[in-house]
Design a protein around this nucleic acid. Structure first.
Length: 434
RNA sequence: GGAGGGGUUCCCGAGUGGUCAAAGGGAACAGACUGUAAAUCUGUCGACGGACGUCUUCGGAGGUUCAAAUCCUCCCCCCUCCA
């Protein structure tokens, strides 16, 4: 995407791709980014050991910045997590132990390095625990606290909501804004970082940091917020039944991750390509008119590119192959999104479907079908497995199971394996060991 | 410190002694329809070798009762108002 004569400037690119909801100081910010060598940061809360799909917007925006020659800072909130941000939350966060937080920080740092190049100072990975943890209460209040008006703070949306709710706002959370503002000031001092980006719920905190820097340093720094990404049906993007879609392959396998993207709704394909891949905009535009089978090819490309970014090319190819063997595969024309590196030939082989092995002796005695569905993890209880079978959603090697206690024996094997299918999209392969 | 309100199954939320494994909604799951989409319709939705039955669940611990989510005692947590 770096080829081409007329390269867009970052701001335009981010705008066109749908990353920007709001910015402060439009003109000055544009100048700042156009003059090269800008430094900007996004904060990531280590509330879990892994980032999830919802974090891709900030991650991708930092990646775009880096591609345009700027220096992004990924700030992991190891310090602020000890407080808990009330913004956009209807209730007090569960307090996390320091050990949990540090564990989460480590996990998140690892993932960020898949998307950003931290070598040679091209990007910076920081943890605000490094400066927040050693703050002293009285000096902090005297130097920082005095710049904050409570009258003003309680007017911010992030607090207002909670002030009027039954849950209330706890004092510890009330301080979050001061700490995040202090982060910005600190990054400005240390790295001349002049831009903070964040979700739209961060607007108040970002603005507070801008004001603090102005008051204490008489310098102008900027803010930018991302829109809340919703699906075309209006629901929040990135959550599924099982909760968030994680970037950690241990929590969400590359295959599931791939499937998540393939299952994108029609109306969201082009939008998601703009946001979650680096495919060139002029190619993505063509997707907007696709329908029927073609839109599914576009979804495959979206899934492949997104999986490649998060898990690497090898895993992306495996996931693609696994999906192909489950759902079939079609050749993808070279003219379709030509910038994508997806393998375009129709595929046959299956590789990374969840699998387990079973002893041949055990199978020889026969195993009731529903037990097999439980032991493979396809169902969480015998009752659930029976229900699945009763409803006609279970099959083994493409033969529908009609009786929950049907005995499965070596006779059901096909090519030495049992392919269990629960519903249309969940599979499990059992290989038989002698 | 005082007064009041509240903690119910994944979420919201009804339920004030048996008819409660607990209304209703959402989410989810399965089926039909499809394009591995959405929408719609139907069914399911604590566990247990399926109906009957048994066991576990309504903040925690005890107690009353033939019977407790419901009554009593103590404790924990949250919120509101007053100080």
């Amino acid at each position: 995407m770096l080829r081409g004569e007329k390269r867009m400037n970052v701001l335009d690119e981010l705008k066109t791709r749908g990353f920007i909801e709001n910015t402060t100081h439009d003109k000055e910010l544009e100048d700042y980014l156009n003059n090269g060598n800008a430094t900007m940061y996004v904060g990531f809360d280590p509330t879990a050991s892994s980032l999830h799909v919802g974090h891709l917007i900030p991650i991708m925006s930092l990646a775009h910045m880096q591609r345009h020659g700027h220096r992004p800072i990924a700030l992991v909130g190891g310090g602020t997590a000890r407080i808990g941000d009330p913004s956009g939350r209807s209730e007090l966060r569960q307090m996390m132990t320091y050990e949990t937080i540090e564990g989460n920080v480590a996990g998140i740092k690892k993932q960020l390095s898949h998307f950003l190049d931290f070598t040679g100072g091209k990007a910076i990975l920081a943890n605000n625990a490094d400066w927040l943890a050693k703050l002293e209460y009285i000096p902090f209040l005297r130097e920082i606290g005095r710049h904050f008006s409570v009258n003003r703070m309680i007017k911010f949306e992030s607090y207002k909501q909670r002030l009027h709710s039954d849950e209330g706002l706890n004092f510890i959370e009330f301080n979050y804004m001061l700490l995040q503002s202090y982060d910005f000031l600190n990054l400005f001092d240390t790295y001349s970082c002049r831009l903070q980006m964040g979700g739209s719920d961060q607007w108040g905190n970002i603005v507070a940091g801008i004001e603090l820097t102005r008051k204490m340093r008489q310098e102008t720094v900027f803010g930018m917020t991302f829109p809340l990404i919703t699906k075309s049906d209006g629901s929040k993007m990135g959550k599924t039944a099982k909760g968030a879609v994680w970037l950690d392959p241990e929590k969400t396998s590359p295959y599931e991750y791939f499937q998540f993207w393939v299952n994108t709704q029609d109306g969201d394909v082009a939008k998601f390509m703009k946001l979650f891949t680096f495919l060139p905009l002029d190619e993505i535009v063509t997707v907007e008119t696709f329908q029927d089978a073609d839109i599914n090819l576009a979804k495959t490309i979206l899934a492949y590119e997104a999986t490649k970014l998060a898990h690497g090319e090898v895993e992306a190819k495996k996931a693609l192959a696994a999906a192909a063997s489950m759902f079939g595969s079609r050749e993808i024309p070279a003219t379709l999104l030509p910038a994508s590196t997806i393998p375009r030939k129709a595929l046959q082989t299956s590789t990374s479907v969840p699998s387990s092995s079973l002893d041949a002796a055990e199978l020889a005695q026969g195993i009731p079908a529903f037990k097999l569905f439980v032991s493979t993890g396809l169902c969480t209880s015998g009752g659930e497995a029976k229900r699945l079978i009763k409803q006609g959603g279970a099959s083994i090697n493409d033969t529908k199971i009609t009786q929950f206690d049907q005995m499965i024996t070596a006779g059901n094997m096909d090519d030495g394996t049992l392919l269990l299918k629960a519903g249309k999209k969940r599979f499990h392969k059992i290989t038989i060991t002698q």
